[in-house]
Structures are given as structure tokens and as C-alpha cells.
Simulated assay, not measured.
Amino acid sequence: MRWLVTGAGGLLGHEVTAALAAEGADAVGLDRRALDVTDPDALAAAFTRHRPGLVVNCAAYTAVEAAEDEEERALLVNGDGPRHLAALCARHGTRLLHLSTDYVFPGDADTPYSEDHPTDPRNAYGRSKRAGERAVLELLPDRGAVVRTAWLHGRHGPNFVRTMTGRARGEGPVDVVADQVGQPTWAADVARLLLALGRTPGARGVFHATNAGRATWYELAREVFRLVGADPGRVRPVSGAAFGGRAPRPPYTVLGHARWQEAGIPPPRPWREALGEALREATGERGAGGSGVPGAPPVPPGQPLQDGDQFGG
């Protein structure tokens, strides 16, 4: 079976294509320049050329703040793109694993959201991702799966954990949002789950691919500082209002993982365990006192930190 990975140039797309290559799978990864998921003709040509048996759609518009002003553009990529893909998959008998987000939920819960909990996004980005979910589930009821993830970190591209390792090497306090609760998630773990899902016959519906447990951005930042040998006391809690963003963030988006067990796939591991392995890998096993992740993007001192355009979605 040939795998086709769209959005292969992004944080998660990199990990999925790397995992497939490591296993010697027959796979093709196409980044945004090679395949625009909003172009039906380009998609049709890609299907004719590569003849995939399974598509992993990692292509997405993830600019949470910008989506408030560009909702039509976000819907084009996150809603129409998956619809075009699902229609082609239905025509060719191809399976589709479509990546979505915790932001489809409003954040008004105090226990983990189940896979079948009603969605009600608070911002334009979440609405655009919900549109893509609906398209996949409607057009591919037997061969489509929606895989929601959140708070991604990894080796490729800017993300919150890389930013924190960069700040840990500096001096002075770091203000981080402390009133949003979610699940820090290692992209490499999501890639492994996607491969397992793709190799499970009949797996369909909605799955939650986040590391287990819960944390605030503040708690995550403190754990990163601790693991790289910096003083966690430098991290200071602030409210989300201090961030000053226009897009409302859901305050609680912890996701449940029951569907993995139903599919016979081991559920995701705890986020602290995954984060520790991610940082050991990124620092070449240098351990405490290491220099953190090379190339972590700079953030102006004094700027409160949370998710956002540069941290994925």
C-alpha cells in the first residue's frame, strides 16, 4: 500500500514521512509547494500519478490569530481542502486520515472531551477545522478517520517547547499563560499513532492523538526549564488576557482516548514521559545543563507566551 502525506513540510508532516521512511514503507510526502490541497485539479493529478492507498492529510492553515481576519482563507484550506481530498478518496477507494485540532471544542468542560462530544468552536480557526472534520466524516463514513491533536512540539519548525528551551538559555523572568489547560503532545508520538491507525483495517471515525495527562502552558514551560537544567522559578504565571490576542482560546481542551483501545491500539503515553524523551533526543542525550534544542526561535523578552501562529495548531 502506498501512503501519500500532504503538508509534509510541516512539523507533523515531517514526523509522519520520517516514520514511514524508517519503516521502509512505500510513501510519498508532498509539501505545500508540491501540492496545494485547495486546488482540485492538482489533487486529481497527484492521485493519478501516485495512486495512494491511504492519504494522511497534514496540510492545514494554522495561523490562529490571522484566521480571525482571514476566515475565508482558513476555510479554503481547512474545510474545502479536506472535502476535495475526501471526494477523491471516495472515488478511488482510498482511506483518509485527516488531522484536526482540540480547538473544535469550546473549552467549557472540566473532564476530558470524548471523541463523540459535540463540537462548538470559539474562534475562526476552530470553525474552519470543524468544517474539514464534517466533510471527511460525511463523504468517507467507512474509510475516513479524523485525528485530533493539540499543543504539538517536535524537532521541525517553531513550537512552544523549542521556544522555551531557547528562553531557558537566557536570563531573567519568562511570563507564560497559566489559565489554559490542555495536553502537550510530541509530534513523533502522533506519527506513530497515525501509522498504527493506517495499518488497522476498518479503523474509522474520530480519534484523539494527544499525550495523556493535562497541563497549563505555565506548567509545561516549568517542566521544560527543569529538564534542560534551568531554574523553573524564572517562569512566571500570567493570564491569557495578557497575551492580547484577538482569537478567543478555549480554556480547557483535555481530550479522552477511549477510541484507541476500541481499535486495539495502545493509547498515548503521558506527556511528561514523551517530553523527556523528546528533549533527550533533541539535545543529543546531553541531559541536565545541556543547551536545549538548537535553533529555538527567539521571542522578545517580556512577551507572554501561549499557543499561537508560531506554535502550530
Rank of each mutant, 00 (worst) to 15 (best):
V161M: 03
S128H: 05
F207R: 04
V206P: 02
G144N: 05
R127S: 09
H117R: 03
L195K: 09
R134M: 13
A124R: 05
Y103W: 14
T101H: 02
V206G: 06
E171I: 07
R169T: 15
T111P: 00
T200I: 11
T185N: 03
R204H: 15
G213M: 09
L88K: 10
L193P: 00
G202I: 13
G198T: 10
G170C: 12
P106T: 11
W217G: 02
L137N: 07
N123G: 10
L139H: 08
D80G: 02
R95M: 03
R95F: 01
G93N: 11
R127Y: 03
H117E: 02
S114F: 00
R83I: 06
L194T: 03
T210K: 00
G107F: 00
L96K: 07
A124M: 11
V146F: 01
Y218G: 04
L97T: 06
S114K: 07
G172A: 09
T111I: 05
A178G: 11
T200R: 15
Y125G: 07
H92Y: 13
Y103G: 00
G202E: 12
R192M: 02
F207T: 04
C89V: 13
L139F: 05
V174Q: 03
V136W: 01
R162L: 05
R134N: 14
A168I: 09
A86Y: 04
A209M: 09
Y125H: 14
H117L: 03
E223D: 14
L85G: 10
T111M: 00
V176W: 01
C89S: 12
D175V: 10
A215N: 06
Y103R: 01
A135G: 13
L197N: 04
L152C: 12
A196C: 09
K129T: 09
E171R: 13
T200G: 12
A178Y: 00
T163D: 07
W186S: 12
P118Q: 04
A90I: 11
T216K: 01
R83W: 01
V146I: 11
R122K: 13
L99I: 15
G182Y: 03
E138G: 12
D102G: 15
D189G: 15
